[in-house]
């Protein structure tokens, strides 16, 4: 067997998994988006009516704008938090054991399910929740703060809680690879801490930032559950709209919306990969 054939064979299982669990479902969705539905039955067809309906509805653009807004705000917050936490872990915690310990601490919330972590915000943020009660007992407020729960605030805070780790891990990984001597070389050239951050650490962490960005953006763009529960049904995103379509059995329309979402997310990921050559950086 030639080495070439060998390597082809060794990627075969993974290729099979990808085709069966990602390729085929995706193909189904794309096909479905061209089918027709008359309220009674689905018919295989090739109609653009579903896409036309999606594009024509003003609500489509509203929910896309809303989803992108959530994604942008969550991204910005997780980036700042993730970068800061990674920076602290890599450059301030000198003891390797402590570093690993603190890193594992960051993963503790992931020992329980997403749903539980999300739901546990509700008794904390609610009208009669811990936070409001605490503030009232301290005499800081007279009325409970209404915006805490079932609001954009609640949605964003839950996203940040759920997804910051996906920003921390790749940035931590990229930062840990920075050669300490390189930082010392910058110090030796007279650079201040801020100059080193700007000219050395941020550029050398960009792979991690790019990967973390991809994780967070795709997670937020693909979510419907958090937004439905934490906004109290007052806010909707692309996927929660799709969920409504599906609940009403409008599968072809939901599929068309899904295809549109996939296109948008792929476009975002492609843009990120264009700015940062993740593959070349990871190969180092």
């Amino acid at each position: 067997m030639t080495p070439n054939r060998m390597s082809q064979l060794s990627v075969l299982p993974f290729t099979a998994i990808l085709i069966i669990f990602t390729g085929l479902p995706l193909l189904m969705v794309v096909l479905l988006s061209f089918w027709t539905f008359d309220g009674l039955e689905y018919r295989p067809d090739f109609t653009l009516a579903n896409f036309a309906a999606v594009f024509a509805a003003p609500v489509t653009w509203k929910i896309f704008a809303n989803t992108l807004r959530y994604a942008a705000i969550t991204w910005a917050i997780t980036l700042v938090v993730g970068f800061t936490v990674s920076f602290y872990l890599v450059f301030h915690v000198r003891n390797l054991k402590l570093q690993i310990g603190l890193f594992l601490l960051c993963t503790i919330p992931f020992w329980t399910s997403t749903v539980i972590r999300m739901i546990s915000w509700i008794p904390f943020l609610g009208r009669e929740g811990l936070f409001n009660t605490g503030l009232m007992q301290l005499g800081l407020i007279q009325q409970p703060l209404e915006f805490l729960l079932f609001s954009d605030f609640a949605v964003i805070i839950t996203y940040v809680n759920l997804f910051t780790l996906f920003m921390i891990v790749p940035i931590f990984n990229a930062m840990a690879k920075i050669d300490r001597n390189v930082i010392e070389a910058a110090l030796d050239a007279g650079a201040t801490g801020f100059q080193i951050l700007r000219t050395i650490i941020i550029p050398l962490s960009r792979t991690g930032i790019a990967l973390g960005t991809i994780f967070v953006l795709t997670l937020v763009m693909g979510d419907f559950f958090v937004v439905r529960v934490m906004s109290g049904g007052q806010s909707s995103t692309v996927v929660s709209a799709m969920k409504n379509n599906i609940d009403q059995m409008y599968y072809p329309q939901a599929a068309a919306m899904a295809v549109l979402l996939i296109a948008v997310v792929l476009g975002m990921v492609a843009t990120i990969l264009r700015v940062v050559d993740v593959r070349a950086e990871l190969a180092k």
Partner: peptide
């Protein structure tokens, strides 16, 4: 007034 040359050169990879 000093400059240090590192053992592994420590060039800025980017």
């Amino acid at each position: 007034g000093t400059a240090l040359m590192f053992q592994n050169y420590a060039l800025f990879p980017h």
